[in-house]
Protein backbone atom coordinates (compact mmCIF):
# COMPACT_ATOMS: atom_id res chain seq x y z
CA UNK A 1 0.00 0.00 0.00
CA UNK A 2 1.53 3.25 -1.13
CA UNK A 3 1.88 6.23 1.16
CA UNK A 4 0.85 9.32 -0.72
CA UNK A 5 1.45 12.91 0.31
CA UNK A 6 -1.61 15.00 -0.41
CA UNK A 7 -0.39 18.48 -1.31
CA UNK A 8 -3.60 20.00 0.06
CA UNK A 9 -3.73 18.12 3.36
CA UNK A 10 0.07 18.36 3.53
CA UNK A 11 0.49 14.93 4.97
CA UNK A 12 1.14 11.37 3.91
CA UNK A 13 -1.90 9.15 3.86
CA UNK A 14 -2.41 5.51 2.83
CA UNK A 15 -3.27 4.64 -0.72
CA UNK A 16 -6.76 3.41 0.11
CA UNK A 17 -7.79 7.04 0.71
CA UNK A 18 -6.90 7.90 -2.87
CA UNK A 19 -8.01 7.09 -6.35
CA UNK A 20 -5.66 7.12 -9.29
CA UNK A 21 -6.95 9.41 -12.04
CA UNK A 22 -4.76 8.85 -15.05
CA UNK A 23 -2.03 10.76 -16.79
CA UNK A 24 -1.45 14.36 -15.74
CA UNK A 25 -0.97 17.44 -17.92
CA UNK A 26 -3.37 16.24 -20.59
CA UNK A 27 -5.35 19.45 -20.93
CA UNK A 28 -8.77 19.42 -22.54
CA UNK A 29 -8.52 21.61 -25.64
CA UNK A 30 -10.39 24.87 -25.11
CA UNK A 31 -11.70 24.66 -28.67
CA UNK A 32 -12.53 21.00 -28.35
CA UNK A 33 -15.57 21.15 -30.59
CA UNK A 34 -13.44 22.11 -33.56
CA UNK A 35 -10.41 19.85 -33.21
CA UNK A 36 -9.76 17.08 -35.71
CA UNK A 37 -10.40 13.39 -35.16
CA UNK A 38 -6.63 12.86 -34.84
CA UNK A 39 -6.34 15.61 -32.25
CA UNK A 40 -9.23 14.14 -30.33
CA UNK A 41 -7.65 10.71 -30.42
CA UNK A 42 -4.40 12.13 -29.10
CA UNK A 43 -6.15 14.03 -26.34
CA UNK A 44 -8.48 11.31 -25.17
CA UNK A 45 -6.84 7.98 -25.93
CA UNK A 46 -3.11 8.25 -26.50
CA UNK A 47 -1.08 7.97 -23.31
CA UNK A 48 2.62 8.29 -22.57
CA UNK A 49 2.61 5.17 -20.38
CA UNK A 50 6.22 5.82 -19.50
CA UNK A 51 8.46 3.22 -17.98
CA UNK A 52 10.25 5.48 -15.53
CA UNK A 53 9.12 8.91 -14.42
CA UNK A 54 5.37 9.27 -14.76
CA UNK A 55 3.26 12.40 -14.24
CA UNK A 56 -0.11 11.33 -13.02
CA UNK A 57 -3.22 12.51 -11.26
CA UNK A 58 -4.65 11.26 -8.00
CA UNK A 59 -7.73 12.22 -6.08
CA UNK A 60 -7.77 12.26 -2.30
CA UNK A 61 -11.26 10.90 -2.56
CA UNK A 62 -11.65 9.74 1.03
CA UNK A 63 -9.97 12.82 2.41
CA UNK A 64 -10.10 16.38 1.11
CA UNK A 65 -11.52 15.14 -2.22
CA UNK A 66 -9.06 17.24 -4.22
CA UNK A 67 -7.41 16.17 -7.42
CA UNK A 68 -3.67 16.70 -7.51
CA UNK A 69 -0.62 15.68 -9.49
CA UNK A 70 2.20 13.32 -8.64
CA UNK A 71 5.53 12.37 -10.10
CA UNK A 72 6.33 8.73 -9.58
CA UNK A 73 8.79 6.18 -10.86
CA UNK A 74 6.73 3.45 -12.50
CA UNK A 75 9.63 1.01 -12.23
CA UNK A 76 9.93 1.22 -8.44
CA UNK A 77 6.51 2.80 -7.70
CA UNK A 78 8.38 5.34 -5.58
CA UNK A 79 6.84 8.81 -5.35
CA UNK A 80 9.19 11.62 -6.27
CA UNK A 81 6.84 14.48 -5.44
CA UNK A 82 3.23 15.60 -5.44
CA UNK A 83 1.86 19.04 -6.28
CA UNK A 84 -1.43 20.82 -6.68
CA UNK A 85 -3.64 20.60 -9.72
CA UNK A 86 -2.97 23.52 -12.00
CA UNK A 87 0.65 23.87 -10.94
CA UNK A 88 3.00 23.60 -13.90
CA UNK A 89 4.84 20.39 -14.63
CA UNK A 90 7.97 20.61 -12.49
CA UNK A 91 11.10 21.33 -14.47
CA UNK A 92 13.44 19.93 -11.88
CA UNK A 93 12.66 16.95 -9.73
CA UNK A 94 14.00 16.62 -6.20
CA UNK A 95 16.76 14.08 -5.92
CA UNK A 96 16.89 13.38 -9.66
Amino acid sequence: MLLIRCPYCEEERPEIEFRHAGEAHVARPTDIASISDEEFETFFFIRANTRGTVYERWRHVHGCARFFNAVRDSMSDRFIMTYKAGDPKPKKLPGV
Binding site: M1, L2, E15, R19, H20, N49, R51, S74, M75, D77
Partner: peptide, 13 residues
Amino acid sequence: DQYYSYSQAGALH
Protein backbone atom coordinates in the same frame (compact mmCIF):
# COMPACT_ATOMS: atom_id res chain seq x y z
CA ASP B 1 -4.08 -2.46 -9.07
CA GLN B 2 -5.16 1.10 -9.71
CA TYR B 3 -2.00 2.88 -10.81
CA TYR B 4 0.45 2.61 -13.72
CA SER B 5 3.38 0.39 -12.96
CA TYR B 6 6.08 -1.66 -14.56
CA SER B 7 7.22 -3.10 -11.25
CA GLN B 8 5.55 -6.54 -11.52
CA ALA B 9 4.40 -6.11 -7.94
CA GLY B 10 1.24 -4.99 -6.26
CA ALA B 11 -0.21 -4.22 -2.89
CA LEU B 12 -1.56 -6.52 -0.20
CA HIS B 13 -4.91 -4.78 0.06
